[in-house]
Structure formats: C-alpha cells, structure tokens
Simulated assay, not measured.
Amino acid sequence: MPRRSTTPRPAVSPDAPERLVTAVRAILPSLTPAGRAIARLIIEDPAMVARSTITELSAASGVSQATIVRTARALGFAGYSELRLALAAASARRRPDRLVPGDLAPGDPLGDVIAKVARAESEAIADTAAQLDEERLGAVIEALAKAGRVTVHGVGASGLVAADMAQKLLRIGLTCHAFTDAHLGLTAAALARPGDVAVGVSCSGETPDVLEPLRTARQNGATTVAITNNPRSPLAALADHVLVSVGRETAFRPGALASRISQLLIVDCVFVGLAQRTPETSGAALQATKAVIDRFLGDARGRSAGNHRR
C-alpha cells in the first residue's frame, strides 16, 4: 500500500486568515522568482496588496497579471479576488505591534535589541502555534508512541533542537538518539526497520546531512517526520508527517536562528502530547529518571561537603 503523504497544503482556511502571511513566508523559497516578488509584497504589506487591483499590483511589482493569478492559486485560492479578500481579513486581525518595523540594525541600543529579539521570538511562537495542525501533531505522537526506536537528525542550530528532542523522549522511556553527523546518521538509518521513526529537523528543508538519513530510513520502512519552515521542501517530500515551524529571517537573525525557538515549541508539544498519550509508562520513566539524578546530585553535594571539611 502506498504511503500517504501528509505534507501541509499552502491553502489558507477561510476561518483563519491570520495564517495567510505565515503560509506565504513558508512557501516563499519554493516559488518562482516572479512569484517570490508577489509573495514578498504580501509579507511586507498585506494591506496594500488587499487594496490593489490586479492591474495596480502588476504595475507595482513588475510582474504580469497571469503570474499574480498563478501565485494566488499556488496559495490555494481560486484567483486574485479571493486572495485579496483573505488579505483584507488578515490585515484587519493583525496586531498593531506587528506593524512596527522590528528588524535589528547595527546601531540599535541594547534596550532595543532586547525588545526586538523578544518580540521576534514571541511572534515566531505565536505563528507556529496558530498554524500547527492538531491532526498532524496527533499522527506524529501516535507514531512515536508505537515506535521501536526513534532517531532525530539535524545539523547546526537544528542539531541542537534534535538533541533537545532526543533527551526529552529519552526521559519518558523511548529509545531515542540524536545525530548531528551525516555518517553516523546514515549508519543508524541503514539499520532502521518498519515500526521505527526517523525525524528530520531543518529550517530550509534542504540540508543534505538530514535528507540522506531520512531517505535511507524511509527506504527501510521507518515512519518519517519533518520539522521544517518549508512545507514544499525536499525534506517535507520525504516525510510521512510534516510539522511546520515559523521564523522570519533578517540580517542579524539568519533562518536557523529565527526558526530555532519555533522548532523547540513543536518539540515541546510532541513531548507533552506523548506524555499524555502514555501516562503510565511516561510517568514511571519521569519519576525514575528524576530520582536517579536527584540521588546523583545529592551524593555529589555530600562528597563536596566532605572535601571542604578535610
């Protein structure tokens, strides 16, 4: 039986227009150069696009009307008119503080740096939570609950997220390992079998060190999961289940940094959902791991106090 892909569609639900700008940002890398010109206008000034006729938008962007229509359809709309209506609704629901430019600049005082970084990270969390699909998250949790072995693959900042996911799942009794080295990741993937789960973490969804282990694990029958900013990426195409993170890239916040906080949110949601799904085994594992760490710390403090007395 063919594997069912659960890659998120870029269409925006009519009852959630506030997700539109987030959806556009997520698929931006997969659009044509002309399509990206329209998408950037939508991201930067959705209200302006909503006010513009297709003729006006074509003149403002330097892109043909046919390309505008194709971009609207790529987002899941029947045409430009429907996209304009959704943008108008998204602009109306957008929080006022989000309309204030927040990109970090070289001359920003530290007070502004703190405020802008905090706002960017809180927005990344809010955007990720708003578009995190409950059904897809539930499917990932179900697969993990039944997994024989879990491997998590990521490099750079995504490698830190992979390590965080592995230690969390280990704390609740799953056999889980994080791999930030492609050779070791491929070694683990070559030994994967049906019932195992392989998770790939990549902001761009194009990192070869993550793609190849996930491809190998999938070929060996493992269930594959992607955590990525780009739902149209090669990583997403390899995954049975895709969880989309959100993070806006700027000069001082490259994509990997911008998405890290939202990837960690997804990992936390998976962890808590899995603990709920398996309360007896998770609870017992958490108690056992906490007890052994507490005992180790208590013994270490005792040894330290004894050394000070001598």
Rank of each mutant, 00 (worst) to 15 (best):
G76Y: 02
V21C: 08
A66P: 01
A88P: 02
L214W: 04
I261K: 06
P14W: 05
A139W: 08
A236P: 04
D196T: 04
G138W: 09
C203E: 14
D112V: 10
T128L: 07
A157L: 13
L160H: 15
D196E: 08
T228Y: 04
A157S: 10
V21G: 03
A237D: 14
V152L: 08
T207V: 08
A275P: 06
R84W: 00
V225Y: 02
T228M: 01
S282F: 02
T55Y: 05
I227W: 01
R301I: 00
L132T: 13
G154E: 07
G148P: 00
V24H: 09
R149W: 01
D240V: 06
A124S: 12
S304A: 15
L41N: 14
V270P: 05
L170V: 12
V113F: 09
V152E: 06
D196N: 05
L85E: 15
A190S: 14
P194M: 07
A300M: 14
R51F: 03
P33C: 09
A118M: 02
N220E: 06
S204P: 07
S58K: 09
L297Y: 11
L184A: 14
P17K: 04
L110Y: 12
R260I: 00
I114G: 09
T71P: 07
A226V: 08
G107E: 13
S233W: 06
L265C: 07
L170Y: 13
R40D: 10
R98Y: 06
S259W: 04
L184Q: 13
V210I: 09
G62P: 05
A105G: 02
G247F: 07
A26M: 03
D112C: 04
A305S: 11
L87S: 09
A178W: 08
A147N: 04
R73D: 10
P106E: 08
A162V: 03
R136S: 14
P2V: 10
T223L: 03
L83I: 03
C176T: 14
A188Y: 02
